[in-house]
Design a protein around this nucleic acid. Sequence first.
DNA 1: CGGAATCCAAGCCGATACTG
DNA 2: CAGTATCGGCTTGGATTCCG
Lengths: 132, 132
Amino acid sequence: MDAAQSEPRPATQSDDACRTRVVLDIVGDKWSLLVVRHLREGPRRFTELKKAIDGISQRMLTVTLRSLERDGILTRTVHGVMPPHVSYELTEMGITLREATAPLLEWSVAHLARIDEARAAYDARTGPSAAS
Amino acid sequence: MDAAQSEPRPATQSDDACRTRVVLDIVGDKWSLLVVRHLREGPRRFTELKKAIDGISQRMLTVTLRSLERDGILTRTVHGVMPPHVSYELTEMGITLREATAPLLEWSVAHLARIDEARAAYDARTGPSAAS
DNA sequence: CGGAATCCAAGCCGATACTG
DNA sequence: CAGTATCGGCTTGGATTCCG
């Protein structure tokens, strides 16, 4: 999908809503924010990230890193070809993204218990057998 | 009804990381935040939401609303059975969730252009034909 | 070590049809 | 009006293999 530059939209609210999905796709991605968080203390190598992020496959780490690099969230630097040595580091924009998501993560920690309660109550209401 | 939860987890760091995914799954969902935003000015009916949220299918609206209801983000109220009249409204928790996501949405609007630039530059670098 | 490529199972989601 | 049920295409992502 490439943007049709020849059509300068009036920029309606629905446009804004659609466009925010670009960012929500990043944030909502299963691994993206985890990678960003693990880079907050500085550059990390591929294998470091792989070991630090529990459960991620090599393929998904590669895909996630490429995507974040393409979006300008982090940089990929090749230090040596033999043996290979690649490090990833947050860009300025990546750092501000992490800051922008901080309130959300705080909210998560603060409300996780209530979500669990709500889920349990809902499942009890709709039928114990319907519990996921 | 008091829940006698007698199993307090040790709550390690990896637990925290895993647990935040519960919320990230909500935020990252294709439609959830859109629904939440459209409820910010008060209760809305099913059909109102369907018309307001462009591109959502009836099925996905139902699924999304059920999920958000189960998580305690919104309430579902049946006002009449014939003809059917159902309204959805944010809970207090839903309102705070919307507030917690506000910084992220502001960040989105502020950085969308730079993301577009980064993507274009990346695609130009890696080969124009490789553009996703 | 860091990735690319292939295969394939699981699930997401839109379209459609049906219901109270 | 506000759903539920079902089918099928498409995407997602893990496992595996190969490569510089």
